[in-house]
Design a protein around this nucleic acid. Sequence first.
DNA 1: TTCATTATTCATCGAATGAATAATAAAGTT
DNA 2: AACTTTATTATTCATTCGATGAATAATGAA
Lengths: 224, 224
Amino acid sequence: MSQKQEPRRKPGRPKAGTDQPDARDAILDQAEFCFAAAGFAGASLRDIATRAGVNQALLRYYFGSKQDLFDAVFRRRGGMISGRRHVLLDRALAEAEPTVETLVRAYLRPQWEMKQSGPGGAAFIALQARVHAEPEAHALDLRREVYDPSLKRYIDALSGLLPAIPRDLVATRMAFLVGAYLFMLNDLGRLADLSEGQIREIPPDDMLEQLVRFLSAGLLAPAI
Amino acid sequence: MSQKQEPRRKPGRPKAGTDQPDARDAILDQAEFCFAAAGFAGASLRDIATRAGVNQALLRYYFGSKQDLFDAVFRRRGGMISGRRHVLLDRALAEAEPTVETLVRAYLRPQWEMKQSGPGGAAFIALQARVHAEPEAHALDLRREVYDPSLKRYIDALSGLLPAIPRDLVATRMAFLVGAYLFMLNDLGRLADLSEGQIREIPPDDMLEQLVRFLSAGLLAPAI
DNA sequence: TTCATTATTCATCGAATGAATAATAAAGTT
DNA sequence: AACTTTATTATTCATTCGATGAATAATGAA
């Protein structure tokens, strides 16, 4: 590297009204990207700080430890998804005749929207899949805290529509559903080569509908 | 720490017929455990070596780099699963009337057996879930190498049973299936609290049958 | 004007990590 | 007996990591 000294930011609080809208958000965005790409252990705070254009010590100032930063990243968008699920469920239940397909679609759509919403959303979807594959207790707690409330509401609503199926079994089938959509969201682009080397021709938006159809059929299957 | 010097093994080849059946296998076993628990980046070669009761340099001697060790771990049991899938498919096709349920069960069972086979098998199942959640190209290549051949055979066989469904769609639905069982295998023990705090009463073996039923119904759903 | 608070950088520390090399001893080969 | 190969430990290296205490500057209230 050359001795070229890039004009370093001076320490101290920046003048009000200067460019950076919020260093905090920049940190969260870049942490999201890094954690998604490399996993918790694989991502480095230095790298995150550099990408966000701030000093590494600032991460600690705002978020505390690495784990705390990770949690903040996960809760940010996880909370959005969970909230939107609640809204869509309320809306679906207000309709005249909610169907299983309607509820499944309502449950999946927030994730789908998040993924399509831009690079940050897509990164979060990948991050989420990683968290679901981690066996550590802390990861499990995070998932529970963020996702279980809305999930339970959907299980209740579906149980109402499926009186012939014990609630336990509905809950189990919802777990199958979660696995299927997590995987699909991440592997969408890689499905291509399963069909004999030809590029798949199912367009992305149809893919969501195909998943809804598949999962609804599974939920409706007779018990025992 | 005290100066207590535990009687250190001297360097050099151990006398034939001494205890250790195979240091190589011990390394693979412990690597499997560590990678499953902490992920690729989170696991340390030192830790693996210590657990295996060998020197760290021996990992390098046998396997090369950390990545190479990881690949060896993955291929070992992944190959077993893939091989068993081929066997069970041949057996199912030799029957008079194979059904969708039969084929789905044949596809899932090797994973299930692996998970039940002991702590090493269970660790591999967790490891496998992690690999499927990693976006890096290398992880994708590994999965493809190990699992795609058997997967393609199952897609063909299922397509034969489902003439009304385009092959593309069968392949897509198989991807949904993979997601569901990966997640189920890992989350089995954690499903408990979804059903209102009561401990789930579906015994593990029934769980597999429930998954088969759920997925078969999805595969059989009419197209479009 | 003073002064506490907030936001930020600086500089560095100790621990841990993956890789690499050198030494050593048993087993195998000639 | 002399050598080569195989398996193993010991040690060192260079790097990276997360964490942290101290410094510094802008802001805003007293």
